[in-house]
Nucleic acid binder design. Sequence first.
DNA 1: TCGTCATTTCGTCTCGCAACGAAGCATCGG
DNA 2: CCGATGCTTCGTTGCGAGACGAAATGACGA
Lengths: 225, 225
Amino acid sequence: MTNDPDLASLAALITEPARAAMLAHLLDGRGWTATELGRAANVGASTASAHLRKLVDGRLIRVTPSGRHRYFRLADGEVARMLEHFAYFSTPRRPRTPGETRASGALRRCRLCYDHVAGEIGVALAQAMVRNGWIVDAEPWFRVTPAGASALAALGIAAADGRACMDWSERRPHVAGALGAEIARAALTSDWVRREKASRALWVTPAGEEVLRVAFGVERFENAG
Amino acid sequence: MTNDPDLASLAALITEPARAAMLAHLLDGRGWTATELGRAANVGASTASAHLRKLVDGRLIRVTPSGRHRYFRLADGEVARMLEHFAYFSTPRRPRTPGETRASGALRRCRLCYDHVAGEIGVALAQAMVRNGWIVDAEPWFRVTPAGASALAALGIAAADGRACMDWSERRPHVAGALGAEIARAALTSDWVRREKASRALWVTPAGEEVLRVAFGVERFENAG
DNA sequence: TCGTCATTTCGTCTCGCAACGAAGCATCGG
DNA sequence: CCGATGCTTCGTTGCGAGACGAAATGACGA
């Protein structure tokens, strides 16, 4: 009858646990091969290939061949935002034991969400930048002010508009979009944060702590390793 | 290993077509019986009952017994927002034929999204209220200004903060939350809009058109009924 | 040109789960 | 108190889809 959007077929892509694991793995924004993603999801290569095909058909991921490898990555930032929003919604529904909380501490603290910084640090950054008057939030956008543009330029960050992305662990928005990607790029190349290998978790270097505190004015800051 | 939120189990609730149909049906914010929802999803009563049980267990809906009837409704506005956001994401991924667009015209134009007004009219309302300085948007919130409070009061609408809810058909936010519910309540009781029976679609009355144009200042307005 | 390696395709198996009808429970109306 | 109605539970059936291994494909390196 009416063409209400087809919730079911999109949800089906996320429902399958192996695919969900792959998508979660891809949320670090990097490209991975079918073999690697299969290992991450605990399935064989052929099974992984079948799943990846469905995800490509569903436009959630795209593939870039490179020699005899084929690298799979999320289709775009919209997909990452959708997944994070979905995670945001599904999180509070499970009671959380203290042990669980500790177990994923590093991820909750600071992680890469596709191409930008999320977690406690990501949200603190967004709040500090708003407090400093560097950006203003206008519904789904974060717009850079003139003052913000020069302050960010001094840190090697190009001014660009950002998008608000709901953080599932903090339940407040952090900065995604072009500005989010710029910040993450600068943070990685300037060695403010380093990525844990094979994880989305980020570790804040001493230099990074300094930048956060002095340049951004992020307070309440103890590195919880 | 880490306790990334469990995307799969939440998605599984939406994946099943019968459940998706029921959820879409419940998006009108009303309570429905198992029999009615089963009919809406084209399944038998016992099958519907099993599905509804899973949705209740998953906290997406809740049930209020009343005599020998049991009324199912969405658990809260958060669920409605999540579903609409999900629909928002899934919509543009299918090419749309002209026939389809016409078919769901009424729904795209004006509909009830849980407890507030969505669609073309819903988005136009939000934009007009921002333009009038009645509300300001502050990330996930729409906050009522003093000027807005008195203007709304004159229309019989109590001032309350609203939430931004992404509209799947218009791809822009409309007003949800307490303010959205207040507006919808006033619109229905003042007979600015009337609900089509057994549908989420709303039909704007001539009086409603007048209010939209004069009081809210919504322009570009032709009723495509 | 040939082996190797990453990936996909194919065929088969199995299991989860949705669907139904019948039966059991509760509630309302007379 | 009895029949009718709405809903749920139970047992059975059948289909869809995921998992795997084996074989085919394509690309690199020697």
